[in-house]
Design a binder for these strands. Structure first.
Length: 289
DNA sequence: AACCCGAACAACCGCAGCCGG
DNA sequence: TCCGGCTGCGGTTGTTCGGGT
Protein backbone atom coordinates (compact mmCIF):
# COMPACT_ATOMS: atom_id res chain seq x y z
CA UNK A 1 0.00 0.00 0.00
CA UNK A 2 3.00 2.22 0.21
CA UNK A 3 2.39 3.53 3.62
CA UNK A 4 3.83 6.94 4.18
CA UNK A 5 6.47 7.24 6.83
CA UNK A 6 5.24 9.04 9.86
CA UNK A 7 7.42 11.93 8.98
CA UNK A 8 10.04 13.05 6.61
CA UNK A 9 13.03 11.71 8.43
CA UNK A 10 15.57 13.73 6.55
CA UNK A 11 16.85 16.59 8.63
CA UNK A 12 14.78 15.71 11.64
CA UNK A 13 16.33 15.65 15.04
CA UNK A 14 16.31 12.56 17.19
CA UNK A 15 17.35 11.75 20.69
CA UNK A 16 16.87 13.59 23.94
CA UNK A 17 14.88 16.78 23.94
CA UNK A 18 16.51 20.02 24.89
CA UNK A 19 14.97 22.60 27.17
CA UNK A 20 14.61 24.87 24.19
CA UNK A 21 12.61 22.29 22.29
CA UNK A 22 10.45 21.59 25.29
CA UNK A 23 9.76 25.25 25.62
CA UNK A 24 8.74 25.55 22.00
CA UNK A 25 6.46 22.56 22.24
CA UNK A 26 4.80 23.74 25.41
CA UNK A 27 4.38 27.23 24.07
CA UNK A 28 2.78 25.87 20.97
CA UNK A 29 0.37 23.60 22.77
CA UNK A 30 -0.53 26.31 25.23
CA UNK A 31 -1.49 28.64 22.48
CA UNK A 32 -2.97 26.18 20.01
CA UNK A 33 -4.02 23.20 22.02
CA UNK A 34 -3.36 19.64 21.03
CA UNK A 35 -4.22 19.25 17.42
CA UNK A 36 -2.87 17.45 14.44
CA UNK A 37 0.44 16.26 15.75
CA UNK A 38 1.85 16.00 12.30
CA UNK A 39 1.59 19.72 11.88
CA UNK A 40 2.88 20.56 15.31
CA UNK A 41 6.61 20.44 14.67
CA UNK A 42 6.37 22.68 11.63
CA UNK A 43 4.13 25.17 13.32
CA UNK A 44 6.07 25.10 16.52
CA UNK A 45 9.37 25.45 14.75
CA UNK A 46 10.70 22.11 15.81
CA UNK A 47 12.90 19.78 13.85
CA UNK A 48 11.07 16.76 15.17
CA UNK A 49 8.44 14.46 13.81
CA UNK A 50 4.92 14.82 15.10
CA UNK A 51 5.09 11.49 16.75
CA UNK A 52 8.08 12.51 18.74
CA UNK A 53 6.30 15.68 19.82
CA UNK A 54 3.24 13.77 20.90
CA UNK A 55 5.33 11.33 22.87
CA UNK A 56 7.30 14.07 24.55
CA UNK A 57 4.12 15.85 25.48
CA UNK A 58 2.18 12.85 26.75
CA UNK A 59 5.04 11.21 28.55
CA UNK A 60 6.88 14.14 29.93
CA UNK A 61 5.54 17.62 29.48
CA UNK A 62 1.86 17.17 30.15
CA UNK A 63 0.93 19.21 33.19
CA UNK A 64 -1.09 16.52 34.89
CA UNK A 65 1.67 14.00 35.21
CA UNK A 66 2.71 12.64 38.53
CA UNK A 67 6.41 12.19 38.76
CA UNK A 68 8.42 9.87 40.86
CA UNK A 69 8.12 6.27 41.85
CA UNK A 70 4.82 4.50 41.89
CA UNK A 71 3.31 4.18 45.32
CA UNK A 72 2.57 0.82 46.88
CA UNK A 73 -1.04 1.25 46.02
CA UNK A 74 -0.31 2.18 42.44
CA UNK A 75 2.00 -0.77 42.09
CA UNK A 76 -0.63 -3.10 43.41
CA UNK A 77 -3.12 -1.66 41.00
CA UNK A 78 -0.74 -2.17 38.14
CA UNK A 79 -0.29 -5.80 39.10
CA UNK A 80 -4.00 -6.34 39.41
CA UNK A 81 -4.73 -4.61 36.16
CA UNK A 82 -1.96 -6.45 34.40
CA UNK A 83 -3.45 -9.71 35.57
CA UNK A 84 -6.72 -8.62 34.03
CA UNK A 85 -5.58 -6.83 30.93
CA UNK A 86 -2.16 -8.18 30.06
CA UNK A 87 0.34 -5.86 28.45
CA UNK A 88 -2.20 -3.24 27.54
CA UNK A 89 -0.25 -0.48 29.14
CA UNK A 90 -2.36 2.35 27.97
CA UNK A 91 -5.43 0.75 29.49
CA UNK A 92 -3.58 0.15 32.69
CA UNK A 93 -2.25 3.67 32.69
CA UNK A 94 -5.70 5.05 32.21
CA UNK A 95 -6.66 3.63 35.59
CA UNK A 96 -3.78 5.39 37.23
CA UNK A 97 -4.28 9.11 37.01
CA UNK A 98 -1.18 11.02 36.20
CA UNK A 99 0.77 8.01 35.04
CA UNK A 100 1.69 7.26 31.47
CA UNK A 101 1.73 3.95 29.71
CA UNK A 102 5.42 4.35 29.10
CA UNK A 103 6.11 5.00 32.74
CA UNK A 104 4.10 2.01 33.84
CA UNK A 105 5.63 -0.20 31.21
CA UNK A 106 9.11 0.79 32.33
CA UNK A 107 8.24 0.34 35.96
CA UNK A 108 6.79 -3.05 35.23
CA UNK A 109 9.86 -4.20 33.38
CA UNK A 110 12.36 -2.85 35.87
CA UNK A 111 10.67 -3.23 39.23
CA UNK A 112 7.48 -5.19 39.38
CA UNK A 113 8.61 -8.13 37.27
CA UNK A 114 11.50 -8.67 39.63
CA UNK A 115 9.37 -8.25 42.70
CA UNK A 116 6.87 -10.80 41.49
CA UNK A 117 9.55 -13.29 40.63
CA UNK A 118 11.11 -12.80 44.02
CA UNK A 119 7.82 -13.64 45.61
CA UNK A 120 7.51 -16.68 43.40
CA UNK A 121 4.92 -15.35 41.02
CA UNK A 122 5.22 -15.54 37.29
CA UNK A 123 4.78 -12.00 36.03
CA UNK A 124 3.41 -13.28 32.78
CA UNK A 125 0.71 -15.51 34.12
CA UNK A 126 0.39 -14.13 37.64
CA UNK A 127 0.45 -17.71 38.83
CA UNK A 128 2.95 -19.22 41.25
CA UNK A 129 6.19 -20.25 39.65
CA UNK A 130 6.95 -23.94 39.93
CA UNK A 131 10.00 -24.72 42.09
CA UNK A 132 11.90 -25.86 39.03
CA UNK A 133 11.11 -22.62 37.30
CA UNK A 134 12.23 -20.65 40.27
CA UNK A 135 15.45 -22.55 40.45
CA UNK A 136 16.34 -21.79 36.88
CA UNK A 137 14.98 -18.34 36.81
CA UNK A 138 17.67 -16.55 34.83
CA UNK A 139 17.89 -19.20 32.18
CA UNK A 140 14.16 -19.45 32.22
CA UNK A 141 13.87 -15.77 31.52
CA UNK A 142 16.18 -15.97 28.60
CA UNK A 143 14.41 -19.01 27.31
CA UNK A 144 11.13 -17.25 27.66
CA UNK A 145 12.44 -14.35 25.68
CA UNK A 146 13.49 -16.67 22.92
CA UNK A 147 10.23 -18.51 23.07
CA UNK A 148 8.30 -15.31 22.83
CA UNK A 149 10.09 -14.45 19.69
CA UNK A 150 9.86 -17.79 17.98
CA UNK A 151 6.53 -19.22 18.96
CA UNK A 152 3.46 -18.69 21.05
CA UNK A 153 4.31 -19.98 24.48
CA UNK A 154 1.51 -21.60 26.37
CA UNK A 155 1.67 -19.10 29.16
CA UNK A 156 1.60 -16.01 27.10
CA UNK A 157 -0.89 -17.24 24.59
CA UNK A 158 -3.64 -16.61 27.03
CA UNK A 159 -2.45 -13.09 27.46
CA UNK A 160 -1.97 -12.74 23.78
CA UNK A 161 -5.55 -13.65 23.39
CA UNK A 162 -6.49 -10.85 25.69
CA UNK A 163 -4.77 -8.54 23.35
CA UNK A 164 -6.39 -9.82 20.23
CA UNK A 165 -9.77 -10.21 21.86
CA UNK A 166 -10.01 -7.38 24.29
CA UNK A 167 -13.76 -7.13 24.27
CA UNK A 168 -14.42 -10.73 25.10
CA UNK A 169 -11.78 -10.71 27.72
CA UNK A 170 -12.97 -7.61 29.41
CA UNK A 171 -16.50 -8.83 29.45
CA UNK A 172 -15.30 -11.85 31.31
CA UNK A 173 -13.52 -9.85 33.94
CA UNK A 174 -15.90 -8.53 36.49
CA UNK A 175 -13.43 -6.05 37.81
CA UNK A 176 -12.75 -4.52 34.47
CA UNK A 177 -16.38 -4.52 33.66
CA UNK A 178 -17.13 -2.94 36.94
CA UNK A 179 -14.53 -0.37 36.45
CA UNK A 180 -15.94 0.59 33.13
CA UNK A 181 -19.45 0.63 34.34
CA UNK A 182 -18.36 2.99 36.99
CA UNK A 183 -17.38 5.38 34.33
CA UNK A 184 -13.74 4.70 34.61
CA UNK A 185 -13.28 3.90 31.04
CA UNK A 186 -10.42 5.88 30.68
CA UNK A 187 -10.27 7.20 27.28
CA UNK A 188 -12.88 9.63 28.39
CA UNK A 189 -11.95 10.39 31.93
CA UNK A 190 -9.66 13.08 33.11
CA UNK A 191 -6.36 11.55 33.90
CA UNK A 192 -6.44 12.89 37.37
CA UNK A 193 -9.24 12.80 39.84
CA UNK A 194 -9.68 15.94 41.87
CA UNK A 195 -8.76 14.19 45.05
CA UNK A 196 -5.66 12.82 43.42
CA UNK A 197 -4.29 16.16 42.65
CA UNK A 198 -1.40 17.05 44.82
CA UNK A 199 -1.60 20.51 46.15
CA UNK A 200 1.88 21.81 46.30
CA UNK A 201 2.46 23.58 49.52
CA UNK A 202 4.37 26.71 49.03
CA UNK A 203 7.37 26.12 51.15
CA UNK A 204 8.30 28.80 53.58
CA UNK A 205 10.85 31.26 52.51
CA UNK A 206 13.48 29.41 54.42
CA UNK A 207 13.31 26.61 51.96
CA UNK A 208 13.94 28.85 49.06
CA UNK A 209 17.09 26.96 48.32
CA UNK A 210 15.04 23.92 47.53
CA UNK A 211 14.32 23.58 43.86
CA UNK A 212 10.86 22.35 44.68
CA UNK A 213 9.83 25.82 45.68
CA UNK A 214 9.35 26.52 42.06
CA UNK A 215 6.25 24.38 41.92
CA UNK A 216 4.27 27.11 43.55
CA UNK A 217 5.18 29.39 40.78
CA UNK A 218 4.03 26.73 38.40
CA UNK A 219 0.58 26.53 39.84
CA UNK A 220 0.21 30.28 39.87
CA UNK A 221 1.24 30.35 36.31
CA UNK A 222 -1.05 27.53 35.41
CA UNK A 223 -3.93 29.28 36.97
CA UNK A 224 -3.39 31.95 34.41
CA UNK A 225 -2.89 29.38 31.73
CA UNK A 226 -6.48 28.36 32.07
CA UNK A 227 -7.26 31.39 30.05
CA UNK A 228 -5.12 30.31 27.17
CA UNK A 229 -7.29 29.71 24.16
CA UNK A 230 -7.35 26.13 23.14
CA UNK A 231 -5.40 24.77 26.00
CA UNK A 232 -7.11 21.57 26.73
CA UNK A 233 -7.32 21.06 30.46
CA UNK A 234 -8.67 17.70 31.39
CA UNK A 235 -11.58 18.95 33.42
CA UNK A 236 -13.11 21.81 35.30
CA UNK A 237 -12.19 20.21 38.57
CA UNK A 238 -8.73 20.11 37.36
CA UNK A 239 -8.79 23.75 36.55
CA UNK A 240 -10.39 24.74 39.73
CA UNK A 241 -8.09 22.79 41.90
CA UNK A 242 -5.12 24.95 41.26
CA UNK A 243 -3.33 22.05 42.81
CA UNK A 244 -1.65 20.70 39.80
CA UNK A 245 0.73 17.94 40.48
CA UNK A 246 2.73 19.28 37.69
CA UNK A 247 6.20 18.17 38.51
CA UNK A 248 5.66 19.46 41.91
CA UNK A 249 8.69 17.70 43.19
CA UNK A 250 11.24 19.86 41.59
CA UNK A 251 12.19 22.20 38.86
CA UNK A 252 10.79 21.56 35.44
CA UNK A 253 10.45 23.07 32.08
CA UNK A 254 7.30 24.84 33.16
CA UNK A 255 9.36 26.96 35.41
CA UNK A 256 11.43 27.86 32.48
CA UNK A 257 8.30 28.96 30.75
CA UNK A 258 7.11 30.88 33.70
CA UNK A 259 10.35 32.60 33.88
CA UNK A 260 10.14 33.67 30.32
CA UNK A 261 6.44 34.08 29.74
CA UNK A 262 5.62 35.93 32.88
CA UNK A 263 8.14 38.59 32.21
CA UNK A 264 10.47 37.20 34.84
CA UNK A 265 8.19 38.37 37.56
CA UNK A 266 9.09 35.41 39.70
CA UNK A 267 12.62 34.98 40.80
CA UNK A 268 13.71 31.42 40.37
CA UNK A 269 16.43 30.09 42.49
CA UNK A 270 17.46 27.17 40.42
CA UNK A 271 19.84 27.11 37.58
CA UNK A 272 19.69 25.21 34.39
CA UNK A 273 22.54 22.89 34.65
CA UNK A 274 22.12 19.86 32.51
CA UNK A 275 23.76 20.22 29.16
CA UNK A 276 21.45 17.64 27.73
CA UNK A 277 18.05 18.49 29.03
CA UNK A 278 18.56 22.00 30.11
CA UNK A 279 17.86 21.03 33.67
CA UNK A 280 19.05 18.43 35.99
CA UNK A 281 16.65 15.67 35.28
CA UNK A 282 18.03 13.29 37.79
CA UNK A 283 18.03 15.57 40.70
CA UNK A 284 14.50 16.41 39.81
CA UNK A 285 13.52 12.80 39.86
CA UNK A 286 15.50 11.54 42.75
CA UNK A 287 15.66 14.31 45.28
CA UNK A 288 12.22 13.60 46.46
CA UNK A 289 13.05 10.08 47.42
C1' DA B 1 41.15 6.75 38.71
C1' DA B 2 39.50 3.79 35.28
C1' DC B 3 36.68 0.42 33.76
C1' DC B 4 32.71 -2.58 33.68
C1' DC B 5 28.07 -3.78 34.35
C1' DG B 6 23.41 -3.49 35.41
C1' DA B 7 19.40 -0.56 36.51
C1' DA B 8 16.39 2.97 35.22
C1' DC B 9 14.11 5.65 32.11
C1' DA B 10 13.55 8.42 27.85
C1' DA B 11 12.81 7.99 23.17
C1' DC B 12 12.21 5.50 18.78
C1' DC B 13 10.06 2.19 15.60
C1' DG B 14 6.62 -0.24 13.32
C1' DC B 15 2.10 -1.84 13.29
C1' DA B 16 -2.95 -1.64 14.02
C1' DG B 17 -7.06 0.75 14.34
C1' DC B 18 -9.92 4.60 13.49
C1' DC B 19 -11.97 7.93 10.64
C1' DG B 20 -13.09 10.87 6.85
C1' DG B 21 -13.32 11.38 1.88
C1' DT C 1 -16.67 -0.47 0.47
C1' DC C 2 -12.17 1.06 -0.30
C1' DC C 3 -8.29 3.95 0.41
C1' DG C 4 -5.17 6.89 2.61
C1' DG C 5 -3.83 9.76 6.47
C1' DC C 6 -3.34 10.24 11.32
C1' DT C 7 -2.96 8.80 15.99
C1' DG C 8 -2.19 5.58 19.61
C1' DC C 9 -0.12 1.50 21.35
C1' DG C 10 3.26 -1.86 22.67
C1' DG C 11 7.82 -3.57 22.00
C1' DT C 12 12.45 -2.39 21.69
C1' DT C 13 16.56 0.31 21.76
C1' DG C 14 19.60 3.95 23.37
C1' DT C 15 21.49 6.74 26.90
C1' DT C 16 22.74 7.97 31.39
C1' DC C 17 24.11 7.07 35.91
C1' DG C 18 25.56 4.75 40.05
C1' DG C 19 27.78 1.00 42.30
C1' DG C 20 31.24 -2.52 42.37
C1' DT C 21 35.85 -4.10 41.31
Amino acid sequence: MGRQPCCDKVGLKKGPWTAEEDKKLINFILTNGQCCWRAVPKLAGLLRCGKSCRLRWTNYLRPDLKRGLLSEFEEKMVIDLHAQLGNRWSKIASHLPGRTDNEIKNHWNTHIKKKLRKTGIDPLTHKPLSPAEEHHRPQQQEQKKQDDKTKEPETSSSLKSTITKPKEEEENHPMVKDVEINGFCTDEVPLMEPHEILVPNCPPSTSSSSPSSSSCHSSMFLEELQHFPGFDWPSDDYNASNGLSLWNDDFNIWDLLINEESDKRLPLDHSLSSPQMGFDQDSRQHELF
